[in-house]
Design a protein around this nucleic acid. Structure first.
Lengths: 197, 197, 197, 197
DNA sequence: AATGAATGAGGGTTCATTCAT
DNA sequence: TATGAATGAACCCTCATTCAT
C-alpha cells in the first residue's frame, strides 16, 4: 500500500471512530452528517471525499468493529486452552471489546433497520462467522465432555444476548467496572455449561 | 367510562398495535407517520386526532407494553410459588410476552435516543419498577437459601439481557418455538442461581 | 324577521364578538377556527352552521364594526352642530368606538391581506363611505369659513391615521384613559383646521 | 470583514429586501417561505442557509428598517437646527423612509402577533429608542419655549400614528407624491405645537 | 483535499373544511 | 342544531447529497 493510501486509511479510521460516537449517541437516523462532520472539525461536504454516502460510512464503522471481534475470537479458538477457558476468554474478550469500544459496538444492532442490499448481506455474513466461531467453542466443550449437553445455538444466543445487552446499561463512569462485569458474567454463564451434579 | 371514550380507546389501541409493527420494522426515525397511517388505511392527518405527535404515539406504544409486563410480574410475585418457581415463571412470562408481542416489545430499547423530557423520565421510571420486581424475586431466593449468593443486579441484567435479545433473532415462522425457547432459557438461566455442589 | 331568525342573529352576533377578540389577539392567520370555537364553548364543526367559512366569519366581524362606525358619523353629520363641533364629535366618537371595541376595531386594517374578490370590494366600498362622511364634515368647515384652507383628503388621512393608530398602543388597563386621549387628540387635531393668525 | 462574509452579507440583504415585499403584500402568516424563495429564484431550502427560520428572516427585515430609522433621527437630533426644524425634519424623514421603503417599513406593525421571546423583546426595545428620540425633540421645543405646552407622549403617538398610517394608503404610482405628503403633513402637524394666539 | 453554497425530496405537523350521525 | 371524526393540502423545516471552485 502506498504511503498516500495509508494516510487516507488512517484518516478514514479516525473519521470512523469519531463518527461511531455520534452515530451511537443519536442513532443512525438521529445523527446527521453535519453532526459527524462538526465533531471532526470538517465540513459536511468533505465527508464525501472519504465515504460514498451515509450508509457507506455506517457500514465501514460496522465492518471495522466486526473485524476486530472476529480476529479476537479466532485467536482464542486457536489457543491451547481448554474449552471452558476458551469460552471464558471469549466472554471476557467480548465484554472488553464491547465496553471499551462502546460507541462502535453499539452500532451493530438492528442492521436490517439501517442497511439494505449488498451492505446488509455482507454484514449478516460477517456476523454469522462470529457466531459460528462461538458455536465451535461450545461444541468443543461438549465433545470433550467438559460441558453438559446443551442446545448449542440457543445457548450461544443466550450468552451473546446477555453480553450484547451490556451496552444498554454499561457506563464507563459509574456502576460496575469492566472487570467486575467480566468476572461475574463469565462466572455465571459458565455455570450453565458446567456439568450439573 | 362513556361509550364514546371506550370507542376512542379501542381505536387508539388498534393504532398502537399497528404502529408498533411499523415502528419496529423501520425504527423510530425510519418509520414515518405516513407509513403508520397507510397501514391502517388512514391519512397522516387523522393520526393527530388520537395522538399529540409522533413521540406521543411512540410513548404510548411503550407504555402499553411495559404496563403489561409489570402486571404480569406482579402477579407472579404475589403468587404462592417458591422463589425458584417464581423466577422460572418470570422468565417464561417475559419470553412469552416478548415473542407474542414482538413488535411492541421491540420498541423498548434505547429510549434515550427517542425520548426526551418528561416522556423519558416516565419511561425510565416504569422500567426501573419492572427491574425492582425482578430483583425482588432474586432476593427472595437468596434469603430463603434456595439461591446461591449472587450479585443481584448483575444477574438480573444478565437474565433480562439474554431475554430481551431474543427479539433480535426470534421469528414466529422459523427456528425455535416459543416453548422450546422458554424451556431452554429458563432451564439454563436457573442453573446460575441454583446452589452449586 | 321571524323569531327564529332573530335568535340566530343574536347567536351570530355573540359569536362575532367573541371571535373578534381571538382574531384580534392572534391575527387572522394566527387564530384558528378551533381557537375561536373553544372560546365559545363550541366545537369547530358547529361554527360552520353559522358561517360559510373563515373568511366569511371575518368579513361579518368587519361588517358589524364598520356599520356601527357609519351609523355614528351619519348621526353627527345630521346634527345641528357647527363644523368644528362636528369634527370634534367625529374624532371623539371614533376614539370611543375604537377603544371600547378594540378587538373588533382592530380587525379592520390591511383588508387586502385577508380578503379577496367580492368580500374585498364590499369592504373597501364601506370604508370609502365612512371616509366620504368624514370629508364632508371638513368640507363644510371650509365652506363655512370656520376652517382654514386645507387639503381635505390629506387632512382626513392624517386624522384617521392618528386615530386608527391608537389601537396599536391603547390598553384599557394602563396608561391614558379614553377621556384623556379623546380630549388631547381632539384638541390637537382641531388646531390644524382652525384659522391660523 | 472577509470578502466571503461581505458576500454573504450582500446576499442576505438582497433576500431581506425581496422578502419584505412578499411579507408586506401577503402578511407574515400569509406569505410562505416558498413565495419568498421563488421570487428570488431560489429554493425554499436555500433560504435556511442564510436564516435560521421564518421568524428570524422576518426579524432581520424588521431590524434593518428600524436601524435606518434610528440613524436618521439621531442625525437630526444632533444637528444644529431649531426644535421646530428638527421636528419638521423628523416628520419628513419618517415619511420619506416609509414611502421609499414601503415594503420593509410596513412590516413593523403588530410585532406581538409575529414575534415571541427574545425577538419580541429586542424589537420593542429598538422601537422605544426611536420613540424616545422623537420625544426628545418635542421636549426640546417645549423647553426652548418654541412649542406650546403639550402632552409629549400623546402628541408623539398622534404624530407617529398619522405618519405610520400613510403606508395604508400611499402608493408610489397614483395619488399624492412623497413631497406633497411631506409638505402637507409637516405643515399640519407643526401647527399643533406652534404657540396658539 | 476541502468547502461553501445550493438543492429537493420528504418528514412532522397544523388546520380549514366536510359530513354522517 | 351540533359534533366527532376524518381529510388533505399546505407549511415550515431538515438533511443527505452534489458540484463548482
Amino acid at each position: 500500500m502506498s504511503l498516500r493510501k495509508k494516510k487516507i486509511e488512517k484518516k478514514k479510521e479516525e473519521i470512523l471512530r469519531s463518527a461511531a460516537e455520534v452515530l451511537n449517541e443519536k442513532g443512525y437516523h438521529g445523527a446527521t452528517m453535519e453532526d459527524i462532520a462538526t465533531k471532526l472539525l470538517m465540513t459536511k461536504g468533505s465527508m464525501y471525499y472519504y465515504f460514498k454516502n451515509k450508509e457507506d460510512l455506517y457500514f465501514q464503522c460496522h465492518r471495522m468493529m466486526i473485524d476486530k471481534s472476529n480476529e479476537k475470537i479466532e485467536d482464542i479458538i486457536n489457543s491451547e486452552k481448554s474449552p471452558l477457558e476458551k469460552l471464558r476468554s471469549a466472554i471476557i474478550s467480548h465484554i472488553k471489546l464491547a465496553t471499551t469500544e462502546k460507541s462502535m459496538f453499539s452500532l451493530m444492532d438492528k442492521p436490517e433497520q439501517k442497511f439494505s442490499g449488498e451492505y446488509l448481506e455482507d454484514i449478516l455474513q460477517q456476523r454469522s462467522e462470529y457466531e459460528k466461531n462461538f458455536d465451535q467453542i461450545i461444541n468443543e466443550g461438549i465433545q470433550s465432555g467438559e460441558f453438559d449437553h446443551v442446545d448449542v445455538k440457543l445457548l450461544r444466543l443466550l450468552i451473546l444476548g446477555s453480553l450484547n445487552w451490556i451496552l444498554e446499561w454499561y457506563s464507563p463512569e459509574g456502576g460496575k467496572t469492566q472487570d467486575e462485569i467480566s468476572e461475574a458474567f463469565s462466572d455465571y454463564l459458565l455455570r450453565i455449561v458446567k456439568k450439573q451434579c
